[in-house]
Design a protein around this nucleic acid. Structure first.
Length: 361
DNA sequence: CTTTGTGTTGAC
DNA sequence: TCAACACAAAGG
């Protein structure tokens, strides 16, 4: 059953009788489409705009500026993305496309842990769902452990395969070739037509990376001409972020969904992990990293990582930087600014990290 | 080349 | 505050 925001006027003229509403947020759209007020095809969700190519964009307005939330295949997806974003931006004042109780408590909790910029980032990258799943997994695990007094937090990761990066893997081609036998034995099947062409919606693979708490999403396809399996879209960003160089080694792991807690409706798909190790020479020739320890500067970014010319990948907390072959303890907390500046502005002036204000928990 | 998402405007 | 629309910028 779907809840559509069908009737704009019902939103603006909504009663302001603030009391006794059972819902957390003041959702005032008509929740049930009981009558024949079905939405016609050109129906639009709040914050959703059509794109020239038939896809759908989502956007919100915040302090007189538009915040672009990304493009999606369907109106529904775009509306959903808008909801996530607007809840994070407006808290209890948010007017959503779908009633707030559609989003479970863990979900709202998840949202509250993120900065505005991070939410937008994840929505635009289409990694939001995976990040949420990961959060809920962790949440459940924690719950389970505390219930049982157990500390059984490790999930079993199985090495699928490795690959030593070639120059073209890290060059401007922005693609990673995955050896055919590895792709075919470990990675999901790609639908082909009789001609070997990729068919259907493109396949995207999401990988977790051990160090940083983010998920990497790559387009995965088969190139008929070269008979190669490749990661394309998203790969360039990964290379840049990690500062990958030829000779570095990628490690691909997988693990089965680790939770057997009821209620966590995990699909049976495997979790995928991508990590890397530096090749020897490079580890020794780590550049003279211009480490600034200006601790006053604040980065609203959640990510720690290399930046621009920096060659050192800094992860969030317990970092050991290896400089000229010497391990440098994390005395120096390097402040790294990463991501697009636009994003950082979003949280500017504010409580980047504070939970949703009036969300009752 | 395709697609995103910004510039801009006018209605509410 | 919001969406419609045109189109430049971005990206593959």
């Amino acid at each position: 059953m779907e809840y559509h925001y069908c009737n704009p006027s019902s939103l603006t003229t909504s009663s302001t009788t603030s009391s006794s509403s059972s819902s957390v947020l003041s959702y005032s759209g008509s929740l049930t489409l009981t009558n024949k007020q079905q939405c016609s095809p050109p129906f639009k969700y709040k914050g959703v705009v059509p794109q020239p190519n038939g896809r759908w964009g989502a956007q919100l307005y915040n302090s007189n500026k538009r915040v672009w939330i990304g493009t999606y295949d369907t109106q529904h997806q775009a509306a959903n993305a808008y909801d996530m974003a607007i809840i994070r931006f407006r808290g209890a004042q948010a007017i959503t496309n779908f009633p707030i109780h559609h989003y479970g408590r863990p979900h709202l909790k998840f949202l509250a842990t993120l900065t505005q910029a991070r939410v937008i980032d994840m929505l635009r990258n289409h990694t939001y769902e995976d990040e949420l799943a990961r959060f809920i997994r962790a949440h459940n695990r924690e719950k389970k452990n505390s219930q049982m007094g157990l500390d059984q937090s490790s999930t079993v990761r199985e090495l699928m395969f490795k690959k030593v990066l070639t120059p073209s893997d890290v060059g401007r081609l922005h693609r990673l070739v995955i050896p055919k036998h590895h792709a075919e034995s470990y990675l999901p099947k790609i639908a082909h037509d009789y001609n070997g062409e990729n068919v259907g919606r493109e396949t995207m693979l999401c990988f977790e990376d051990g160090k940083k708490d983010r998920i990497w999403r790559f387009k995965y396809c088969y190139w008929k001409s070269s008979q190669n399996y490749v990661l394309t879209k998203g790969w360039g960003e990964f290379v840049k972020d990690k500062g990958l160089k030829p000779g570095d080694t990628l490690l691909f792991h997988s693990s089965n969904s680790d939770t057997n807690i009821e209620g966590s409706s995990d699909n049976n798909s495997k979790r995928l992990f991508i990590d890397h190790t530096r090749c020897k020479e490079q580890a020794d020739v780590v550049k003279d990293a211009t480490v600034s320890n200006d601790s006053a500067t604040s980065s609203s970014s959640d990510r720690g990582s290399d930046n621009g010319n920096g060659e050192i990948a800094l992860s969030s907390s317990n970092v050991v930087i290896r400089l000229f072959g010497v391990d440098i303890c994390p005395l120096v907390r390097t402040v790294v600014t990463v991501g697009c500046d636009r994003m950082q502005e979003l949280d500017g002036g504010g409580d980047a990290r504070c939970p949703i204000s009036t969300m009752s928990g």
